[in-house]
């Protein structure tokens, strides 16, 4: 399975996302922001970091990049796309997911191991989780406060599109504790925390069993491979 990982000017976690794809058994394919060609990939990851200085709004200029025009078109046809952190911001600015992300409520950049509840497992990126499973993956952002108007929130809750919710601590003031969302088809998922940093024992978050042993992020990538194999 070929999984594309986009690099924008300012992307930080593209190499980590490529490594996560590899550890899950896929073949990572680097994609370039200025290239409209997706090189026949079966899925796409929009990784975290920054893009175009995050000028105007985080993800706003990236959403206009040549590669995104192809990704938006294919995502609307069912191509699995995962947006992590800045990638989630790019997805909302591309209107592939609703709402917006604003500066954290307390104004601070936050970096912590974060517990999330998986509230929807019928997506390309979460089918290997158990419903309501609690997972721990790193969170690191300055602009992770999820907001949407009352009508959108009602629709997200009613149509069961909220895929991840913060547990114990709402680190950034996100409405309804929203950490991540899916689209109606379930091929597009975006979240602020970073699954690609929790894929290999020794390099993941601290867990009760052992330091840095957390690998809960790996299932995002095995999920997409599973959904592609069974497609």
């Amino acid at each position: 399975m070929k999984i594309g990982v986009v690099t924008f000017p300012g992307t930080l976690d593209d190499r980590d996302a490529q490594r996560a794809v590899r550890l899950a058994g896929g073949t990572p394919v680097p994609l370039w922001h200025a290239d409209t060609n997706l090189h026949d990939v079966d899925a796409v990851v929009l990784p975290g970091g920054f893009s175009y200085g995050d000028y105007l709004r985080c993800g706003a200029i990236a959403a206009q990049a040549p590669v995104m025009q192809t990704i938006i078109e294919k995502a609307n046809q069912g191509l699995p796309v995962l947006g992590i952190c800045n990638g989630f911001q790019v997805l909302v600015e591309s209107h592939l997911l609703p709402g917006g992300l604003i500066r954290n409520e307390n104004q601070h950049f936050i970096c912590r191991d974060q517990t999330l509840r998986v509230e929807n497992t019928s997506t390309a990126w979460t089918n290997q989780f158990q419903l309501n499973e609690e997972i721990v993956i790193p969170l690191k952002n300055g602009e992770g406060g999820y907001i949407a108007d009352a009508e959108t929130l009602k629709r997200l809750e009613g149509e069961n599109l909220i895929t991840f919710r913060y547990v114990d601590v709402n680190p950034n003031g996100s409405m309804n504790d929203i950490a991540g969302l899916r689209n109606a088809k379930g091929n597009v998922v975006g979240l602020m925390p970073h699954p690609e940093h929790a894929v290999e024992a020794g390099f993941g978050p601290d867990m009760p069993e052992a330091m840095r042993s957390g690998v809960d992020g790996l299932k995002f990538f095995t999920s997409v491979i599973h959904s592609l194999v069974n497609a």
């Binding site: 105007l56 709004r57 706003a60 206009q64 909302v92 600015e93 609703p98 709402g99 917006g100 604003i102 907001i147 949407a148 108007d149 959108t152």
Partner: peptide, 8 residues
């Protein structure tokens, strides 16, 4: 549709 985001 670009200079502003109608959601926020």
């Amino acid at each position: 549709d670009f200079l502003s985001n109608g959601v926020i």
